[in-house]
Design a protein around this nucleic acid. Structure first.
Lengths: 318, 318
DNA sequence: ACCAAGCGGTTATACGTATAAACGGAGGCG
DNA sequence: CGCCTCCGTTTATACGTATAACCGCTTGGT
């Protein structure tokens, strides 16, 4: 490439990076650019990383449970924002690894930051990452962590939001569905805790996603007056079972879902649901991250960015 | 690292990579391993890439429309399979770029393979990639491409599958919903073409995802006897509107969805749906990819791997 | 007339890795 | 005793980039 342009390799680098404290004549610049275009030159990211010591990568090793539609939306926007700050968001496999082995596979890429489910982190893993040049490790969790700053998906707030609406509608005996499903059960627990913050006596309703299970719940004589069904899919399952059992919704039992899916308006009665708005956070998070990487800001364990902002959308089911 | 172990840097490399044609005594090996563990040594991926010329990365720059749940499942499995073959799957942002600019941003990572929506590729882009060391460019498309081998999501087969079932059920005047929604409209067109392969006179029903639109369709006097509703969500929208309009499903109009969502069984009538089985393909695709990268196999334009294997699941709506 | 300063470049080096080639020592064979 | 072979290890080099240091030339100031 340097040969093709008839200049030294250093000059090429100066021109292509628009290095401000390098002095290169305009005609040489043109020669270099022309040669670059002619050869289809593409800089080598690994060589650049090796030289500079920083990769500009922001790693997001996803746990399976996170790959919901809402989180995917968040990631898309987050990636755009990061690009604007000169970072590159990378979703990186390795879903099975945890702790130090996981940290090693991430550290190999020398990422600027890692955004990962806090349950996959250990003290040793975080130390390994930071000692290998990663400036920021951010956890995804439902509450602050003693290990790292976290982005919270505040499931308790979701539950509390639903419960407040149910109480406000005059229902006093509440229940909350906890899905019996690998990966989302923990979120279910957190949402239940949120419900109980507002309605201490709220009943826990364990439920797997099957019509038989739902029918069994619906057949109970002592149903709560208001149920937060974890999300819209479980709400639809439950309402369907209640109707089959002759229970009127919302007259006998009010039901609240979450996620505010488009199909939530198709149910009869139309589903009342907790809506999330993750559109604002990606920009804030990207900016925060850049400040930390630049060293302009310190973010330690305990720091928190709230990711979802729950808000009730009232329709007919509650 | 080499100093810490008291040996040369070359020896370290030999030991840590278990290089078979290097001769190192067992006690030296042990010293190196011990030092590596003590220092928390993590190899530098960029240096390795720079040296070897191959990164082992398989890039999947996603177009927004692809990020459905089914495709995510596919990617998860595909990533696992690739890991088994020594590759690393990376979902890489840059959703807005196309053609040569996109190819440049991908080529910077010197990936072994790129799996990308064929609509984002051009001849020049493919050339740029292959000339920069990428061995395989695989497109995602709904039909074979003159540019690259493709993984087809055979939407025509989906439509044909639904139409055959409807015809077999005695419905002769068919219709197919084409969603008016950015990103999935093209798939809708393809599925319509599939329906028409089996039922040439099938009517095209354009539909946005709103209850008003659906109600307008449902109010028509000359409804087809059988409708393929593009997917389950549109099917639920449509059925809901039909019922509100007093049209009986399936007696007056039969409706088939696609995706076989869990909630599809909650509708009354239970939804008949086209089911996809993407579980087998990731392994095959990963193996194929490895053979090509190794040079044991040639795969040119026109080659095709079928990703989804449509199959009708009969319930009550059709 | 001579030195300092500015300009437009080149040379040299380092990053961490993989691997070919060289090397010293021990042992076997003629 | 000299030579070849095998073993265990070190030396040297290259990958592509960024940047500090250097160098020759012109120009302006005194």
């Amino acid at each position: 490439m340097a040969r093709a342009a008839g200049v030294s390799q250093a000059t090429v680098s100066y021109v292509l990076n628009d290095n401000p404290n390098a002095r290169v004549s305009e005609q040489t610049r043109e020669r270099v650019r022309e040669a670059a275009a002619r050869l289809g030159y593409v800089p080598d990211a690994s060589a650049r990383t090796l030289r500079t010591g920083r990769s500009g990568l922001v790693l997001v090793p996803l746990a399976p449970a996170r790959t919901g539609r809402l989180f995917q939306d968040f990631l898309d926007r987050f990636g755009d924002e990061l690009g604007r700050h000169g970072f590159t968001l990378v979703q990186y496999g390795e879903r099975h690894l945890k702790g130090v082995p996981a940290a090693k596979s991430w550290a190999a890429l020398r990422p600027a930051a890692v955004l990962v489910d806090v349950t996959r982190l250990t003290k040793a893993a975080v130390d390994l990452l930071t000692s290998s040049g990663t400036r920021v490790v951010i956890g995804l969790a439902d509450k602050p962590s003693p290990l790292v700053p976290v982005v919270v998906l505040d499931h308790e707030a979701v539950g509390a939001c639903a419960a407040r609406h149910l109480l406000g509608g005059g229902r006093s005996r509440l229940g909350a569905v906890v899905p019996r499903e690998e990966g989302i059960d923990l979120m279910g627990e957190a949402r239940l805790r949120g419900v109980r913050q507002v309605a201490p006596g709220a009943e826990r309703i364990d439920l797997a996603f099957s019509e038989e299970e739902a029918a069994r719940v619906a057949a109970r004589a002592d149903l709560p007056e208001g149920i937060f069904a974890y999300n819209d899919e479980y709400a639809m399952l439950l309402i369907s079972a209640l109707q089959d059992a002759g229970v009127r919704v919302p007259d006998d039992v009010a039901v609240v879902g979450a996620d505010d899916l488009p199909i939530a308006t198709l149910m009869r009665p139309r589903l009342t649901s907790v809506h999330f708005d993750p559109t604002a956070t990606p920009g804030e998070l990207a900016a925060l991250l850049e400040e930390i990487v630049r060293g302009e800001r310190e973010a330690g364990p305990g720091a928190v960015v709230d990711l979802y902002r729950p808000r009730i959308v009232v329709r007919d089911s509650a």
